[in-house]
Computed example of a mutant assay.
Amino acid sequence: MPRPFKIPQSVLVVIHTPALDVLLIKRADADDFWQSVTGSKDRLNESFAETARREVFEETGIDCAPGSSLAHQLHDWQLENVYEIYPRWLHRYAPGVMHNTEHLFGLQVPAGTPVRLSPHEHTDFQWLPYEVAAEACFSPSNAEACLLLPRFLQKQSQP
């Protein structure tokens, strides 16, 4: 049975420490493509927050589901990017779908948080200072999200 087409609505989750070190993971299906956690909705009525929590756990083993110790650390940045889907991945979407809407989140974790990669999706990970992480990202929207990190942390700390 063929796989269903991907829904062109996804999340980007910038996982970071209090010191602004950002977790980047290397894609298994693309040489030297480093990125934050990303993933599409599994169903149209899945919220972006549900998608973010599911993708973080699937790709890194980090649990930020309701009731977990990190649940309150997942922050919806209330930002979306609309971008053209890379040609190499268009076959995953319904014919005629050319653009994806990406919703941004940040997840603060303690330094030293263990990472367990999904081997069919990612082959390596690294923690980098946010500015260095931005330079390493293959996606311009991911690089921009890394650079926005200090601004969002400042907003979160204000009463």
Rank of each mutant, 00 (worst) to 15 (best):
Phe5Cys: 09
Phe5Tyr: 15
Lys6His: 10
Ile7Asn: 12
Ile7Leu: 15
Pro8Asn: 11
Pro8Cys: 09
Pro8Leu: 03
Ser10Glu: 15
Val13Arg: 06
Ile15Trp: 03
Ile15His: 03
His16Tyr: 07
His16Leu: 03
His16Ala: 09
Leu20Ile: 00
Leu20Val: 00
Leu20Phe: 10
Val22Arg: 01
Leu23Gln: 02
Leu23Ala: 01
Leu24Tyr: 11
Arg27Pro: 06
Asp29Leu: 14
Ala30Arg: 14
Asp31Val: 12
Asp32Arg: 11
Phe33Glu: 05
Phe33Asp: 05
Phe33Lys: 12
Trp34Lys: 01
Gln35Met: 13
Gln35Thr: 15
Val37Ala: 05
Val37Leu: 01
Thr38Asn: 07
Ser40Phe: 04
Lys41Met: 07
Lys41Pro: 08
Arg43Ala: 11
Leu44Arg: 08
Asn45Arg: 10
Phe48Glu: 05
Phe48Asn: 11
Ala49Asn: 10
Glu50Trp: 00
Arg54Glu: 06
Val56Ile: 12
Glu59Asn: 11
Thr60Val: 08
Ile62Lys: 10
Asp63Leu: 10
Cys64Glu: 02
Ser68Gln: 06
Leu70Ile: 03
Leu70Gly: 03
His72Lys: 11
His72Gln: 14
His75Arg: 08
Val82Pro: 01
Glu84Gln: 12
Glu84Phe: 12
Ile85Asn: 13
Tyr86Arg: 15
Tyr86Ile: 08
Tyr86Gly: 10
Pro87Leu: 10
His91Thr: 01
Tyr93Val: 04
Tyr93Arg: 04
Ala94Lys: 08
Pro95Ser: 10
Pro95Glu: 14
Pro95Val: 08
Pro95Lys: 05
Gly96Met: 07
Val97Phe: 00
Val97Cys: 02
His99Trp: 09
His99Arg: 11
Asn100Arg: 03
His103Ala: 08
Leu104Pro: 04
Phe105Leu: 07
Phe105His: 01
Gly106Asn: 03
Leu107Met: 07
Val109Thr: 10
Pro110Leu: 03
Gly112Met: 08
Thr113Trp: 00
Pro114Arg: 00
Pro119Cys: 06
Pro119Asp: 04
His120Val: 07
Glu121His: 14
Glu121Arg: 09
His122Val: 00
His122Trp: 04
His122Arg: 08
His122Phe: 07
Thr123Cys: 13
Asp124Phe: 01
Phe125Val: 09
Phe125Asn: 03
Leu128Asp: 06
Pro129His: 14
Tyr130Trp: 15
Glu131Asp: 13
Glu131Ala: 15
Val132Tyr: 01
Ala134Met: 04
Ala134Lys: 04
Ala134Ser: 11
Cys137Met: 07
Ser139Arg: 12
Ser139Ala: 14
Pro140Phe: 05
Pro140Ile: 06
Pro140Lys: 05
Ser141Tyr: 11
Ser141Gly: 15
Asn142Tyr: 02
Cys146Trp: 04
Leu148Cys: 09
Pro150Phe: 00
Phe152Leu: 13
Gln154Val: 07
Gln154Trp: 15
Gln154His: 13
Lys155Ile: 12
Ser157Gly: 10
Ser157Met: 12
